[in-house]
């Protein structure tokens, strides 16, 4: 595609090494990185905490059914939406990785400063899930394919397929069986029981409680498969939402005469 004169001038200016233009452009880069860093932590974190937060907060919510099914689905919204501007406007296939890093950083800060130092919940109870491998795979598929459909299918589903395997190495120790008061539970149950949550009792946990139909305990696989399917669709949908939000236009400014602009200034 051909650039306009202005664009060509600017491209030539900012690509001149050590020039003022390159310095100004780099300064802008730094500002934008900082804005994105804080804004993504905030937006992605509030989205995750209020949609699948409880599973992420508590070790005794991290089950084979809801946690594994719902978390990847909700993880994909914002990274998919940001993938559009990142990739299609700046050629940067890093939206997923950046979102994952920012989310987990925000979560750790909150778990340490809020959950542990303020309200005394132990670390074994409140660690966040690992989300980076799946979202990074999504980025990598986008990088290699540069194709929305391929990324929806393989990248979207990767978020779900990588979720349980990424977390099992840290969750497994908590699923060792324990007998307490003559009852069989696992270590995670035991932690949840021991360290009192006044407002989230046992029955409030959305966890797998059995259905007679989970085919010999393959719950994790079944959940992952379903989640992968939904993630494919969600990647596509949220990419489109990202596209829409990136290309938003303008509305007339009725107050512009107060700042010395007339109607003819519209076309400038």
């Amino acid at each position: 595609m051909k650039l306009t004169t202005n664009e060509a001038t600017l491209l030539s200016a900012v690509t001149t090494p050590n020039s003022e233009a390159a310095r100004i452009a780099r300064g802008l880069d730094m500002f934008v990185v900082a804005i994105l860093f804080f804004a993504i932590i905030a937006a992605f974190h509030i989205h995750i905490m209020l949609t699948v937060g409880d599973w992420d907060f508590w070790v005794d919510w991290k089950d084979r059914m809801y946690w594994v099914t719902a978390t990847p689905m909700l993880l994909i919204f914002i990274p998919a939406a940001l993938s559009y501007p990142f990739m299609m406007r700046f050629g940067l296939p890093i939206a997923g990785t950046l979102c994952a890093f920012c989310l987990v950083l925000g979560e750790w800060i909150s778990r340490i400063v809020g959950f542990h130092l303020w309200t005394y919940f132990p670390y074994s109870m409140i660690w966040p899930a690992i989300v980076l491998p799946g979202l990074m795979l999504m980025d990598l598929v986008l990088l290699l394919s540069r194709n929305l459909f391929i990324t929806s299918i393989f990248g979207g589903s990767a978020v779900a397929f990588a979720f349980a395997p990424a977390n099992w190495p840290i969750l497994a120790p908590y699923h060792e069986p324990v007998v307490h008061m003559g009852q069989l539970v696992n270590v995670a149950d035991m932690i949840g029981y021991s360290f009192t949550r006044t407002a989230t009792p046992e029955y409030l946990r959305f966890i797998e409680r059995g259905t007679l139909r989970t085919f010999g305990g393959e719950s994790t696989l079944i959940s992952t498969g379903f989640s992968g399917f939904v993630c494919m669709i969600l990647f596509f949908v949220w990419w489109k939402i990202g596209e829409w939000l990136t290309n938003l236009g303008t509305i007339p400014n009725v107050m512009k005469k107060h700042v010395g602009l007339g109607d003819d200034d519209d076309e400038k």
Binding site: H45, F57, E107, G114, F115, T198, T200
Partner: peptide
């Protein structure tokens, strides 16, 4: 997120 923990 801190609010989630104070509720507990």
């Amino acid at each position: 997120e801190q609010d989630a923990t104070w509720h507990q």
